[in-house]
C-alpha cells in the first residue's frame, strides 16, 4: 500500500472498490491499526479521527476509539464470534468493554437485535452462533457493531458469502441504520452494484493505490481512470447485446513485491504512453467531482 489518502466525512456513505489484492481491506484494517506489526508496518502518514491522530495513540487510547467510535463488520461472521458464548453474552460484553452499565447493556441488546430485523430477538439472544444461519449471524455482527452507536461503520464485504435476497436485506438494514442514526458507512466491496446503489462517493483501488476518487454518479457516467473504465465495461449491462463480447482487461495485476517506478496499471492499459513507465501519476483533477491517477486524464 502506498500513499493512500482516505477521508470519511461525518454521516457520509463511502465505497472502497477493488479486486482481491488491491489493498482495500488492508486500508480499512490499518485505519484501526488492526494489522500485526511485524510483518505489517505503518511506514508513514497519519490517521486522524475527529482531530486525534490514531497512528500516534497507544493501545489503550486506541481501544476507546475502536468499536466505540469506529466499528467494523467483517466478511466471515463465524470467525468473529465466540462459538462457546451465547449471542447476548457477546453483545453485552462488547458494550461493557466500552463502559456501558450491565443493565443498560442488557436492555440495549434486545433493542439492537430487534433493530437489525430479528423477528424473535429473545430467542436469538440466548442462541449460540452455530444455531443461527449466515444471514442471522451477520445481523448479530451488525447489532454488536451498532450497539454502542458508533460514528463510523466500516463494512468489509459483509455480504459476500450470503444469498442474494439475504444480502439485500443486510444492505437495506445498514442503509436504514445510516438514515436513522446518521452514522457514516464505509462499504469495502468488489461489487460495483453495491457501489452504484449504496454509496455517495467511491475510491477505486488498484495495486495498493487509490487510482480514482469520484462521486458515484460521476464514476458511472464518466469514469476517468482506464482501470475504472475497464472494470465498468466488463459488466454485462443492459445495453450489451446478448452473448456479445464483454470488455476484457487482459493481463494480470502486478506483483506488489515487484512494483517498479511508473504507473502500476501501465502494462494492462490501452492508452499508456512513455511517461507512464517512468513516472507514477498523482491524483489529477478529472472532472467536477473526480480525481484520477492517470497522466492521460483530461480535466
Amino acid at each position: 500500500m502506498r500513499g493512500v489518502d482516505l477521508d470519511v466525512m461525518a454521516g457520509e456513505k463511502l465505497g472502497i472498490v477493488g479486486e482481491s489484492g488491491s489493498g482495500k481491506s488492508l486500508t480499512v484494517l490499518s485505519v484501526l491499526r488492526l494489522l500485526p506489526d511485524p510483518p505489517v508496518r505503518l511506514l508513514g502518514g497519519s490517521i486522524t479521527y475527529a482531530g486525534q491522530d490514531l497512528a500516534a495513540m497507544d493501545e489503550k487510547q486506541l481501544a476507546s476509539v475502536r468499536g466505540k467510535e469506529i466499528a467494523m463488520v467483517y466478511q466471515d461472521p463465524m470467525s468473529s464470534l465466540n462459538p462457546l458464548l451465547r449471542v447476548s453474552t457477546q453483545i453485552i460484553e462488547t458494550m461493557s468493554a466500552h463502559g456501558v452499565p450491565k443493565d443498560t447493556a442488557r436492555r440495549r441488546c434486545r433493542e439492537v437485535l430487534h433493530q437489525v430485523g430479528m423477528a424473535d430477538p429473545d430467542r436469538v439472544a440466548v442462541a449460540f452462533p452455530h444455531e443461527l444461519s449466515g444471514g442471522m449471524l451477520q445481523r448479530v455482527m451488525i447489532a454488536m457493531a451498532v450497539a454502542v452507536s458508533p460514528r463510523v461503520l466500516i463494512a468489509d464485504e459483509p455480504t459476500t458469502a450470503l444469498d442474494v435476497t439475504i444480502q439485500r436485506q443486510i444492505l437495506d438494514l445498514v442503509e436504514a441504520l445510516h438514515e436513522t442514526s446518521g452514522m457514516a458507512v464505509v462499504w469495502v466491496t468488489h461489487d460495483l452494484g453495491v457501489v452504484a446503489q449504496f454509496v455517495d462517493r467511491v475510491l477505486v483501488m488498484y495495486a495498493g493505490r487509490i487510482v480514482e476518487r469520484a462521486s458515484t454518479a460521476q464514476l458511472f457516467s464518466r469514469p476517468a481512470h482506464p482501470y475504472t473504465k475497464a472494470l465498468i465495461g466488463t459488466l454485462p449491462r443492459d445495453g450489451a447485446a446478448h452473448r456479445s463480447a464483454l470488455v476484457q482487461i487482459g493481463g494480470q495485476p502486478p506483483d506488489p513485491a515487484r512494483l517498479g517506478q511508473g504507473c502500476p496499471f501501465r502494462d494492462r492499459c490501452p492508452i499508456a504512453v512513455d511517461r507512464c513507465a517512468h513516472e507514477e501519476p498523482p491524483l489529477l483533477p478529472a472532472g467536477e467531482d473526480s480525481v484520477a491517477a492517470c497522466w492521460r486524464v483530461e480535466g
Binding site: 452494484g193 453495491v194 449504496f198
Partner: peptide
Amino acid sequence: ALAAAIPVPDP
C-alpha cells in the same frame, strides 16, 4: 424478488 435483490451497477 431475486431480480430486484441484486444491486444494479447503474446509479
